[in-house]
Design a protein around this nucleic acid. Structure first.
Length: 644
RNA sequence: GCCGUUGUAGCUCAGUGGUAGAGCACUUCCUUGGUAAGGAAGAGGUCGUGAGUUCAAUUCUCAUCAACGGCUCCA
């Protein structure tokens, strides 16, 4: 007999060799039907795998993340079975569960998969699922495993086997499909009640673009049709807050083939948002001791050779223009220009920290397939600044930048983000990173300390640093789940030397400053893209292109409406009047759709009493107040940059 | 850049080997209406671009450009 410890601490005895399913049955049949897998001593196991020793156990159902992953992983196998049926001779690479579903990478040879095939595959998968086949785990020797896949002619699985040893190789079989797989899997295909194959994509083998491109099939599945329907419904809802859709509907930005891919044109509404963000940035930076600078959009090749950018990033810079025998590049970063400003006057330690800021326009020739709405573009406006400081000043400066981030995030109500400490990879020194092993270690430790001291939660990631130093990235997710770096705070111990930047120290020698590159508000493009999705288009009043819309009931009240409009404009409120020949219901609907935060409905009653009837977007009628009272409310809300 | 999909009016989308349609938006007229779409009429597109097949191409084929879903990349 063995002792099984349950999550609540209860201990029960079972025969050795008992399975999680058996245990579930001993509790209730209903529970047993829902069990997908089990957590045994902290490891996820098949619910059908015999337990031989004392163990802690928790049963995993759809309600747990591990349960879902197992479910999706098993569905990937089911899909592979269907694919093998439709495409005999197909070779498989890997098919893991991912956030929101699963995929399987495969080599179809010369054949192509089309959207129609997906529906046929779904049908086949449903058929196979209804056969109620068990997922059967089998431990197998490396020799036999190699023999199996050699026979099958699947060089991808053989490649996987190369890195595995006897004793750690298992096969899983369901129905007619057998796969090399670590597992675990759900007990039976019959649990998979609803399947949706979402898309076909190419994916390089082992993620390397030099390798062959495999066909990747994405899908998602659920234990009930209802859950699938809800999932699809949720995706539909998410699409509604896609910044590309909102950007068009709200007149924020546009793009045009004649202008070029990835080149954003900000329309009047979007420009208002830009100006408000810049106002915020300038206020904040002024208060924090930054000075503003303005630099040109181009520079000679020699500067990017000095900076070291050209060798690393030539491919993603627009090709140079030739003038007077010189090559000029569109700038893809502002730092070199800023360094030149630092170098323009001799500096002493008394001048440090020297902080200069610019909403700099930079151009990056991003790969065509990477362009994505406002999030990934080829011309961007960075909330850029560079801080030149001594080693002694570094901690305070770096922390001040972090504090600035947190201040901004509070204003925007940004709470779902990950701070990522991006470190170098020692084996790539001299290739991807400047070859200064000691400086790397030192500065990485400095940055880590700042994060620790300020109690900011963060994750460390290798091989994500800039070529000139470690950095902290703030990662966010778009509504369709793509990850982006919203803001960045970087240490640079390299360019100061490259540009021979110097300051006179207190003892009259010279030293090179450390440089901090920072962009808490990222770029206008990405930040506004993010904000549109974050607020679902319902921007706070201070950011709204139109803050107040005046809606006269009929044209008899247009004149009064215009006097209200003048009052609002005098108070610097962005207001408009809807004097179209439309009914009030129509005017309200249109204004609601444009997500204007305040609507002022005015008619006979309001005109006679010198009032306005206030309607808040998404909230409805708030009743009538005097013009002065409304002005006061709105002005305060704007001044405080309130989020609601 | 690579794989796949798509490209018809400002927007969302039907449709066809014989040079096109709806809804919304737009213009004009009627209507003067109290908190999410009042009514009528009108205007608007060489069907992404280029070539090929054909008596005839928006429709079929190829190329190209762009967008979309991924992969790779992201100072």
């Amino acid at each position: 007999m063995i002792n099984i410890t349950f999550p609540d601490g209860a201990v029960r005895s079972y025969e050795a060799g008992v399975t999680a399913i058996d245990i579930a049955k001993s509790i209730s049949e209903g529970l047993a039907r829902k069990v997908l897998a089990a957590n045994i001593n902290g490891q996820v196991w098949d619910a059908t795998r015999p337990i031989q020793e004392d163990a802690t156990l928790s049963l995993l159902t759809w309600d747990s993340k591990d349960g879902q992953s197992t479910f999706w992983h098993s569905t990937a196998h089911l899909m592979a079975e269907a694919v093998e049926d439709m495409y005999p001779g197909v070779k498989f690479w890997v098919g893991p569960p991912v956030e929101g579903g699963f995929y399987y990478d495969m080599d179809l040879g010369d054949r192509k998969m089309t959207e129609e095939d997906l529906q046929k595959l779904e049908k086949k998968m449903n058929e196979l699922a209804r056969q109620n086949n068990n997922y059967i785990r089998k431990e197998i020797s490396k020799k036999d495993a190699v023999a199996y896949f050699t026979e099958k002619g699947d060089e991808y699985k053989l490649d996987l086997l190369e890195n595995l040893n006897d004793g750690e190789i298992t096969f899983y079989t369901q129905g007619s499909f057998t796969d090399l797989c670590r597992g675990p899997h759900i007990p039976n295909t019959g649990l998979i009640k609803a399947v949706k194959l979402t898309n076909i994509a190419g994916a390089y083998w082992k993620g390397d673009e030099k390798n062959k491109q495999l066909t990747r099939l994405y899908g998602v599945s659920f234990p009930s049709q209802k859950q699938l329907d809800e999932h699809l419904q949720m995706l539909e809802e998410a699409k509604k807050r896609d910044h590309r859709k909102l950007g068009r509907e709200l007149g924020i930005y546009t793009m045009d083939e004649d202008v070029g891919p990835g080149l954003i044109m900000w329309m009047p509404n979007g420009t208002v948002i830009i100006e408000e963000l810049e106002k915020l940035a300038k206020e904040t930076e002024n208060a924090a001791g930054y000075k503003r600078v303005v630099t040109p959009h181009i520079a000679k090749e020699s500067m990017y050779l000095t900076s070291g950018h050209l060798p690393y990033y030539a491919d993603s810079m627009y090709p140079p223009m030739e003038m007077e025998g010189e090559k000029y590049y569109l700038k893809s970063m502002n730092c070199p220009h800023h360094h030149k400003i630092f170098a323009a006057e001799s500096k002493s330690y008394r001048d440090l920290p020297y902080r200069i800021a610019e909403y700099g326009t930079v151009y990056r020739y991003e790969q065509s397939g990477e362009l994505f709405g406002l999030m990934r573009v080829r011309c961007l406006h960075m909330n850029d600044a560079h801080i030149y400081c001594t080693k002694e000043q570094f901690n305070d400066e770096f922390r001040a930048v972090n504090d600035m981030y947190l201040k901004y995030f509070k204003i925007f109500g940004i709470d779902k983000y990950v701070m990522r400490l991006s470190l170098h990879a020692p084996e790539k020194l001299g290739v991807k990173y400047v070859n200064e092993p000691v400086l790397w270690t030192e500065t990485e430790e400095m940055v880590r300390n700042v994060l620790k001291e300020s109690n900011i939660p963060y994750v460390e990631v290798q091989d994500e640093a800039a070529f000139y130093g470690p950095k902290i990235d703030v990662q966010i997710y778009s509504v369709i789940g793509r990850e982006f770096t919203l803001a960045t705070n970087q240490v640079d111990f390299s360019q100061g030397r490259s540009f021979k930047l110097e300051y006179t120290t207190q003892d009259n020698s010279t030293d090179t400053p450390l440089i901090i590159h920072r962009a808490p508000l990222g770029t206008h493009e990405r930040f506004i893209g993010f904000l549109l999705e974050h607020y679902a288009g319902k921007l706070p009043v201070w950011l709204s292109p139109v803050q107040v819309k005046i809606l006269p009931i009929s044209d008899k009240f247009t004149e009064y409406g215009k006097t209200v409009l003048q009052e609002l404009k005098k108070a610097d409120i962005r207001a408009e009047i809807d004097d179209r020949n439309e009914k009030i219901g129509k005017k309200i609907r249109d204004t609601e759709m444009m997500k204007v935060p305040y609507m002022l409905v005015i008619g006979e009653k309001e005109m006679n009493e010198g009032k306005v009837s206030v309607r808040r977007q998404g909230k409805g009628d708030l009743g009538a107040v005097s013009i002065a009272e409304f002005l006061n409310t709105v002005s305060t809300e704007i001044k405080n940059r309130s989020s609601l």
